[in-house]
Design a protein around this nucleic acid. Structure first.
Lengths: 170, 170
DNA sequence: TATGGCATGTAAACGGTTACATGATTAG
DNA sequence: CTAATCATGTAACCGTTTACATGCCATA
């Protein structure tokens, strides 16, 4: 149930509406834990029922602003420190590599080269985010930089791997 | 629909029963695309309905051996060369990093240290698989080594990142 | 006054996990 | 004979995606 904790985490920085949260997800969490609009509104309802958040203000157009409760904060901290992350990383990119013997060597090399390109583009995108994050000093940006660095390092390793793998196919 | 293609991929190396496939998933694909028993039997039924595999033999205890059809092979190749891999990699490990400001610096450092340990253990596990794979020369092992190398490289980058991140917290 | 952005909500479908349920065959 | 392994199948539940549906408010 990570969506729940993603919402709690964002609300730990201050109250927000479902609409606000959706934008926050798209800006900061889209590469780590994306969420859709329908998911969000449903989850906010459940969180309110569970007493982990409550409606702190109502605005125009039916806007409901939610704030995290003490219980919600406690649950967020418990999740961070006591719940083991799940390590399953399904990758259909890597799954295709397993079966590369079923296509020609040219096609296999093209596949790997294409993956390297994709990750290079992703890295450029992340560099853009890095610039955007410069000069921002809130909690989320501070630790956002840390997750960004993760993306940068792993992305570079991925590009190097794909180039190496391409060279392995004769 | 990657499960479908994972099954086709395994069957491209030769006929197998649901039970055989389950073991193949556990041995070779567990780190890339895990599957459960119930999922497998259901998928084999659907693949047979779609004409991508057929029952090539029946054995004791109701055993049904499935073989990939020409259509199935064509579909597998199409999926490898023409379908773009989905890049979404949800990570609740990284999601926690975003919210690390909500726990004490000691807890945050402990969290990152713990993640480094976990990946180091995973790397040891992968080294074990590397030894197991040595001297095997079928298609799956050949390209399995390539995915293994991916796991090894990315794992190392992950450990280095976690150690770096731990040092960032003052 | 019309467009774009703000704002919330519901429903269907899909894929994956967990649990249940059953029974045949083989090896010790 | 009995335990382990082989072997298949179904059902309930949960989280995610996609699509549908509606309406208000500000500004150009």
């Amino acid at each position: 149930m990570s969506l729940r904790h993603a919402v709690l985490g964002l609300l730990s920085e201050g109250p927000a509406s479902g609409y606000d949260l959706l934008k926050m997800f798209d800006i900061s969490l889209s590469n780590v834990w994306p969420a859709t609009q329908s998911q969000l509104y449903a989850e906010l309802g459940k969180l309110a029922d569970a007493g982990l958040v409550d409606v702190s203000a109502e605005g125009p157009r039916g806007r409901k602003e939610y704030a995290i409760t003490e219980e919600g904060l406690a649950e967020l901290r418990r999740w961070i420190t006591e719940v083991e992350p799940t390590r399953v990383l399904r990758s259909d990119m890597l799954l295709r590599v397993f079966f590369l013997a079923q296509v020609s060597p040219e096609q296999a090399r093209a596949y790997l080269g294409h993956q390297a390109d994709r990750v290079r583009k992703q890295l450029e995108h992340l560099e853009g985010i890095r610039e955007f994050l410069e000069n921002r000093h809130d909690n989320l940006s501070e630790y956002g930089r840390m997750t960004l660095e993760y993306g940068l390092r792993l992305g570079k390793a991925q590009v190097e791997w794909a180039e190496w793998a391409e060279g392995q196919i004769r």
